Amino acid sequence: MLDEAENQLDNRGPWMNPEAPVTENSENFGTERDVANCPFFLKTGACRFGDRCSRKHVYPTASPTLMIRGMFRTFGMEESRRDDYDIDACLEHSEEELQESFLEFYHDVLPEFKSVGKVLQFKVSCNYETHLRGNVYIQFDTEEQCKEAFIKFNGRWYAGRQLHCEICPVTRWKNAICGE
C-alpha cells in the first residue's frame, strides 16, 4: 500500500490513501477495528480526512436523520475558519454571546423543520474542527419525513449561504462524538 501511495506522489498525481481491505467480521462494524468502514463517518456523518480517508464512507439511501453541513455559524466560528491554526481566534466572544446566537438560530430554523414532520432530535455542532463546524442534524420521526425535508431544504439559501443537505447515518446520539 505504501508503494502505491509513493508512486502516486512521484507521478505528481492526486494523492489518495489506498483502499482498505474488506473484512467479513461484522462484530467490528463501525469500530476502530473495522478496517473497511470509517468509524468517524458512521458516528458523525463527517470525516476529518474527507475524500482522502482510506476507509469507506457508507452514505445511506434512507435514514431518519438529515445533516446540513456548516449551517450554523457564529462570529467566533467564522474567525477560526479564517485561520484554522490560531486556536485563540474565538476567545473574544463569550459563552453568553454564543448562547444568544444559538437561541436566535434555533427559534428561526426549528419551525421550518417542524413544518415537514415530527422532529425527534435537533443537534447543532459547535465544534471548531472543520469537518464538524456548524453542522446541523435533524432526526425526524420517519425516513419519509427526512426525504421530504431533503427535497425541501437542499439548495435553499439561509443567511447568505446555500444549504447542502445529506442523508446521515447517525441515529444513535450517544456515540456521535468526535475525538478531536
Score class of each variant (00 low, 15 high):
Met1Gln: 05
Glu4Lys: 13
Glu6Ser: 10
Asn7Ile: 10
Asn7Cys: 10
Asn7His: 13
Asp10Phe: 15
Arg12His: 12
Trp15Glu: 05
Asn17Cys: 08
Ala20Leu: 14
Ala20His: 11
Val22Gln: 10
Thr23Gln: 15
Ser26Pro: 09
Phe29Ser: 07
Phe29Glu: 01
Thr31Pro: 05
Ala36Leu: 12
Pro39His: 04
Pro39Ile: 05
Phe40Tyr: 08
Phe41Gly: 09
Gly45Met: 09
Arg48Ala: 08
Asp51Met: 00
Asp51Lys: 07
Arg52Gln: 11
Cys53His: 01
Ser54Ile: 05
Ser54Trp: 09
Arg55Gln: 07
His57Arg: 11
Val58Ile: 14
Tyr59Leu: 13
Tyr59Cys: 11
Tyr59Gln: 07
Ala62Val: 12
Ala62Tyr: 04
Ala62Leu: 10
Ser63Met: 07
Pro64Thr: 08
Met67Asn: 00
Ile68Ala: 07
Arg69Asn: 00
Gly70Tyr: 02
Met71Glu: 04
Arg73Asn: 15
Thr74Ser: 15
Phe75Ala: 10
Glu79Arg: 15
Arg81Met: 01
Arg81Glu: 02
Arg82Met: 03
Arg82Trp: 01
Asp83Asn: 15
Tyr85Met: 10
Ile87Val: 09
Cys90Val: 06
Glu92Ala: 05
Glu92Thr: 00
His93Val: 14
Ser94Tyr: 01
Glu95Val: 13
Glu96Ile: 10
Leu98Ser: 11
Ser101Met: 07
Glu104Asn: 09
Glu104Arg: 03
Tyr106Ser: 04
Tyr106Lys: 04
Tyr106His: 11
Leu110Ala: 01
Pro111Lys: 08
Glu112Asp: 07
Phe113Ser: 05
Phe113Trp: 07
Lys114Met: 06
Lys114His: 01
Lys114Cys: 01
Val116Phe: 12
Val119Arg: 13
Lys123Val: 06
Val124Ser: 15
Ser125Val: 11
Cys126Phe: 12
Tyr128Trp: 03
Leu132Tyr: 00
Tyr137Leu: 14
Gln139Arg: 15
Thr142Cys: 14
Glu143Phe: 04
Glu144Ser: 12
Gln145Phe: 14
Gln145Glu: 02
Gln145Arg: 09
Cys146Trp: 11
Ala149Pro: 00
Phe150Gly: 07
Lys152Trp: 04
Lys152Cys: 01
Phe153Lys: 07
Asn154Leu: 05
Asn154Thr: 03
Gly155Met: 07
Gly155Glu: 04
Trp157Tyr: 14
Ala159Asp: 08
Ala159Arg: 13
Trp173Gln: 13
Trp173Ser: 12
Asn175Thr: 03
Ala176Tyr: 04
Gly179Ile: 08
Gly179Tyr: 02
Gly179Trp: 03
